[in-house]
Design a binder for these strands. Sequence first.
DNA 1: ATAATTATCTATCGATCACTAGAAAAATTT
DNA 2: AAATTTTTCTAGTGATCGATAGATAATTAT
Lengths: 183, 183
Amino acid sequence: MELFWRHGYEGTSIADLTTAMGFTPPTLYAAFGSKEDLYREVIQFFLLRSERRRMDAALEQPSAYAMLRSYLYAAAESFTDPHTPAGCMVATAALQCASENQPIAQEVARIRQHMVLGFVERLNEAKTSGELPATIDALALANFYTAIVQGMSVQAIDGARTNDLLAVADLALSAWPGTKDEG
Amino acid sequence: MELFWRHGYEGTSIADLTTAMGFTPPTLYAAFGSKEDLYREVIQFFLLRSERRRMDAALEQPSAYAMLRSYLYAAAESFTDPHTPAGCMVATAALQCASENQPIAQEVARIRQHMVLGFVERLNEAKTSGELPATIDALALANFYTAIVQGMSVQAIDGARTNDLLAVADLALSAWPGTKDEG
DNA sequence: ATAATTATCTATCGATCACTAGAAAAATTT
DNA sequence: AAATTTTTCTAGTGATCGATAGATAATTAT
């Protein structure tokens, strides 16, 4: 996971993986099938371990605003966690790749879309509860906060520190078009 | 440029390039030196042709707010221009790559940093002119709008349309902590 | 028109890519 | 302990990677 996270799908070779894991290619293929299968498995592992944990904690918040704040703060922390590679493993992954790896890119893009829809769902709840004006475009707002997460991931890769990303998150939260009462 | 733009540095092979340009590898190497040199040259060409044009037009605006609006709107248009690959060639390029291509990644990251500093400079002017409160952290604000550009680039690659990105831009502009009078 | 130069070709370099057949070693079962 | 199964290794597959030597063609200069 660490290798794919840091170097991406194309930037990580079977030799890199087997060296890091301490065995030889046949063992890897017996265990995971192919490089592509292994990458998919790693992504799912990452989602369960990092992304889902972030999102679950955020969705527990009492308001949509608090959810976004929780998520963005958690992202700022984890994107700059010195124990893991910088940035997010899916938010800015597989953006450019060779034609033969297009399926990989599409799968990662689908996961990103899924994340947007998670935000949209919560924002629509906020519209019915009155936290957000009914006139608000929930999809546009979800795209906006997703863009912030993606930009934070880029900047983490470029060496930004936790506080830099927290400041970006706060500015994004200042654009919140609803109430900020609870949370 | 189109190949590197769409598939990235690692995702584009010499064979891809020579096929697209209609000649053979020795001609490419005689003309450009190496794949790395060619990529650097392409990036410079892109900066002059697209990025610099966007930035120059933005810096002509009478206010910092209008500059950001001009830049973000231009980005929304060009990132989704059907005549070129989706997204920006530098904003989301070379984020993950093999260790041996680290120099390329660092160079692109340096260009991104340069873009942030361009924003910072204009924002500091806005502080002295009174358009922005003196208490504002210009670097944080520049990082915020840069993050939006980077996120817009990711979403363009993922298939977003011009209007989607314009909506994201407008929400980012709504976070502007200064006056919006002129422009 | 001939000579010198430049440009592009064919054919390939060694290295590395993802991946695998068949042997050897380790673990498990009888 | 012997037989069987599972696992991992050595060694190598063909394909493709970026890059190049030497020959050929096209252009330019005399």
